[in-house]
């Protein structure tokens, strides 16, 4: 198939960007979306033009490196998959496809379609862990955990940190990302010990980094490639308010 691509080009964080039109021909319906961009880049290199920068690595939906707004939707039109899992058979011959980077203040554009998501790492550093050292741990089966709780923890833990939730949100809120981590640990006995500090520290780091508030539009859940549920946000809110209450009492 032949396609017109409208791609956001921006040389660096501080420079202005703009859309540029490109044509690609003879794209196989079996190619993935990123393989289609590979074809474009080969073409650009051969013609002495600057190839389009975009993040990617595993190309099977798990590393969370790929991103992109495709025709205005994070990770494109299909539900429950990442950009790298989308195939060109989803598009029609002659179509125009608009491709943009994540647009959110805490994720500045580095170049073209590549953005800086280190803010997510900073949130994790603020408390997204259980403070155990290496070695000397009790037997793994010492504390049984109900299967239901372990399954909910796993649902939350399947977040790939791609940032689609932030990109989808009109407030650029990172609530779903933070809630997924808080919720994973809240479901497990190991995570309970530090639960209070964790939720407070992660939430205040999120605010400090300039992520917006959650206004319950649920766009994040709709666009999450791992279909992580907003029920985790509710759980985090409970954790947050009860931790605040306890802190107040202790004052």
């Amino acid at each position: 198939m032949d396609l017109t691509l409208k791609i956001w080009r921006q040389p660096s964080t501080d420079e202005k960007g703009k859309f540029v039109d490109y044509q690609v021909q003879d794209i196989s319906a079996d190619a993935s979306f990123l393989e289609m961009l590979d074809v474009l880049n080969e073409q650009l290199v051969v013609n002495d033009e600057d190839p389009v920068a975009f993040d990617h690595d595993c190309r099977e939906g798990i590393c969370g490196a790929c991103s992109l707004y495709i025709n205005g939707r994070p990770h494109g039109p299909d539900k429950g998959i990442t950009t790298c899992q989308m195939h060109m058979r989803r598009f029609k011959d002659g179509e125009t496809i608009v491709i943009e980077p994540w647009r959110a203040k805490p994720f500045p554009v580095i170049k073209d379609l590549m953005v800086d998501r280190t803010a997510f790492d900073e949130i994790i550093r603020a408390g997204g862990y259980i403070s155990v050292g290496t070695g000397g741990m009790p037997d793994a089966n010492a504390i049984p955990i109900p299967k239901r709780d372990a399954d909910i923890a796993m649902d939350a833990a399947s977040c790939i940190g791609c940032g689609a939730c932030v990109a989808a949100c009109k407030n650029a809120s990172a609530m779903l990302f933070v809630a997924a981590k808080v919720s994973q640990f809240a479901m497990l006995p190991q995570g309970k010990v530090e639960a209070r500090e964790r939720v407070q520290n992660m939430v205040s780091k999120m605010d400090e980094l300039g992520f917006g508030n959650c206004s319950n539009t649920y766009a994040c859940e709709a666009e999450c490639p791992k279909e992580i549920s907003v029920s985790h946000i509710a759980r985090m809110n409970r954790e947050f308010f009860s931790s605040k209450l306890i802190s107040e009492k202790e004052k």
């Binding site: 155990v132 070695g135 741990m137 009790p138 109900p146 299967k147 923890a153 994973q184």
Partner: peptide, 16 residues
């Protein structure tokens, strides 16, 4: 043991 202590959600049976 290490991974469970870190909160890695391994698959579990109904008995936990």
């Amino acid at each position: 043991d290490q991974c469970v202590a870190q909160g890695v959600p391994f698959a579990r049976e109904y008995g936990g």
